[in-house]
Design a protein around this nucleic acid. Structure first.
Length: 273
DNA sequence: ATATCCACCTGGCGGC
DNA sequence: TGCCGCCAGGTGGATA
């Protein structure tokens, strides 16, 4: 479910509610998500204060007093909410961070593809080290995309979804950005011209910024920390619109749905070349 | 090194 | 009503 805008939305909400609070205890209700949850049990976080919250790609990093850090990934179906401790626990709320102020920060993940990894500052897990640039940063620009796409034979959609090329662009926003840029998602990366790269970079930034402003996209189960749905679903131009008319050329005959790298890919055969 | 395929999970949907 | 196959926002390991 969560791509960069959804993670940014969750991170911002958690930051508001959690920074300054203190952990009382951590409850794990299942042994593992993607990875074992053993390492976050015990007293390690008890009494620690949450001092900061940051996002890197699709990861949320929680900073605690001392050197403790927590790396959170929401997988496909992860979300968080902060409620009173008395609030009944939902079926898929697998990890509960009980706070000293009586609140309970809960990690809910139906499909269990998410993960939580504790580490110490200065000992970042490999998955953080291998990330490419943030798509909304200055380093992600025309020159960069043009240069990393040279001699690459994978479809351009696969390239921009690759975390080590640029981090945080998932299936929905890759589809949307390519439609907006008028670029065929199956076009081989190395075949893109410099001006197509420029257009694509601009569109990626445009789409992500608007999605963040809208609180992300809810297709099935994404919920913000306050339970609200992401409103960018009302602005989707191509994702999930197979058989419907194209918003740009007005013709439904041209909307295609194919698989690229195993992921559903939507595009207008007339508007995207 | 790079591109592709598949497993990891649960649940919702359409078809029969 | 029920069963079955297919699909879903991501990641990473195996394979050629």
């Amino acid at each position: 479910m969560p791509e960069l805008p959804e993670v940014e939305t969750v991170k911002n909400a958690l930051e508001t509610v959690l920074v300054g609070t203190q952990i009382d205890r951590v409850i794990t209700r299942i042994p593992k998500l993607r990875y074992s949850l053993n390492s976050i049990k015990g007293k390690k976080l008890s009494g620690k204060k949450i001092t900061a919250m940051e996002r890197r790609g699709r990861y949320i990093i929680v900073h605690f007093s001392g050197n403790e850090r927590l790396l959170l990934h929401l997988g496909m179906s992860g979300c968080c909410r902060v409620v009173d401790q008395e609030t009944p626990v939902l079926k898929h709320e697998h990890v509960l961070f009980e706070l000293k102020n009586g609140k309970s920060w809960r990690f809910d993940d139906t499909r269990r593809f998410g993960f939580i990894i504790p580490y110490l500052a200065g000992h970042e897990p490999d998955c953080l080290k291998n990330l490419g640039p943030e798509p909304l940063s200055e380093i992600f620009n025309t020159e960069y995309l043009f240069s990393v796409s040279r001699n690459r034979r994978c479809p351009i959609k696969s390239l921009i979804m690759e975390n080590k090329t640029v981090t945080g662009i998932g299936n929905i926003y890759a589809n949307e950005a390519l439609f907006m840029a008028g670029v065929d998602p199956g076009k081989l990366s190395g075949k893109l011209t410099e001006s197509e790269c420029e257009k694509l970079v601009d569109c990626i930034k445009n789409i992500l910024n608007r999605a963040i402003a809208a609180g992300g996209t809810t297709i099935v189960d994404f919920k913000g920390v306050d339970g609200s749905e992401g409103k960018f679903k009302f602005e989707l131009q191509i994702y999930g619109r197979a058989t419907e008319p194209c918003f740009r050329c007005g013709n439904g005959q041209h909307i295609n749905k194919i698989k690229l790298g195993g992921r559903s890919t939507y595009f207008c055969g007339k508007c995207q070349r």
